Lab assay of single mutants.
Amino acid sequence: MTFKLIINGKTLKGETTTEAVDAATAEKVFKQYFNDNGIDGEWTYDDATKTFTITE
């Protein structure tokens, strides 16, 4: 399955996707992406659209 990440950061904005077997696996991938890029904020997940959103 394809999961999308929408980034609404102070310095970084955009979208990316990842292929994962489930939302929990995608969450781990995206959290690592947050850490690697110094993004910290509030994030949500919409199961209907398989979209994670992080807002700094």
Rank of each mutant, 00 (worst) to 15 (best):
T2Y: 08
F30T: 00
E27H: 07
T53I: 07
N37S: 11
N35M: 14
N35H: 13
A48G: 07
G9E: 02
Q32M: 13
K13E: 06
D46W: 02
A26K: 00
N37C: 15
D22Y: 02
M1I: 14
V21F: 10
G38W: 13
T51W: 01
Y33S: 04
N37Q: 14
W43A: 02
K31F: 06
E56Q: 12
Y45A: 00
I6H: 05
T18A: 07
V29R: 09
D47S: 13
W43Y: 05
I7L: 06
T25F: 07
G9D: 02
D40V: 14
V21T: 10
G14S: 14
E27T: 03
E42I: 14
W43I: 08
D40M: 12
F52T: 00
N8W: 12
E42M: 12
K28M: 10
F34D: 01
L12E: 06
I6E: 02
T53A: 04
I7M: 07
E19Y: 14
I6V: 11
T44A: 10
N35F: 13
N37A: 13
D36N: 10
T25H: 14
F30G: 00
T11M: 08
N35Q: 14
T44D: 07
D47R: 05
T55Q: 06
I54T: 03
I6W: 02
K10R: 12
I54A: 04
D36Y: 07
T2R: 13
T18E: 03
F30V: 03
T17E: 07
Y45G: 00
L5N: 01
A26I: 03
K28S: 09
I39N: 04
I7C: 13
N37K: 14
K4C: 09
E42R: 07
K13M: 10
T49S: 08
Q32N: 07
G41E: 03
A20S: 05
G41Q: 05
L5H: 01
A20D: 02
T18R: 04
A24Q: 10
K10N: 11
A20F: 05
I39P: 04
F52S: 00
N37P: 05
T11N: 11
F34Y: 14
K13C: 15
F34S: 15
T18H: 05
N8H: 08
T16R: 14
E15G: 07
A48D: 12
N8L: 14
T55A: 05
F34R: 06
K31M: 11
K13W: 12
T2P: 04
T17G: 03
N35S: 13
T11P: 04
Q32C: 06
K4S: 05
I6G: 00
T49K: 05
I39L: 12
I54E: 00
F3Y: 12
K4L: 08
V29W: 14
D46L: 02
A26F: 02
K50W: 05
T51L: 03
L5I: 07
Y33A: 05
I54W: 15
W43V: 06
Q32V: 07
G41A: 09
K50E: 01
D40H: 13
V29E: 06
K4A: 03
T11L: 13
E27C: 14
F3E: 02
I39E: 04
T55Y: 09
T11F: 14
A23G: 03
G38R: 08
T18K: 03
E19G: 04
I6K: 06
T51V: 05
F30A: 03
K50Q: 09
A24H: 08
E42F: 11
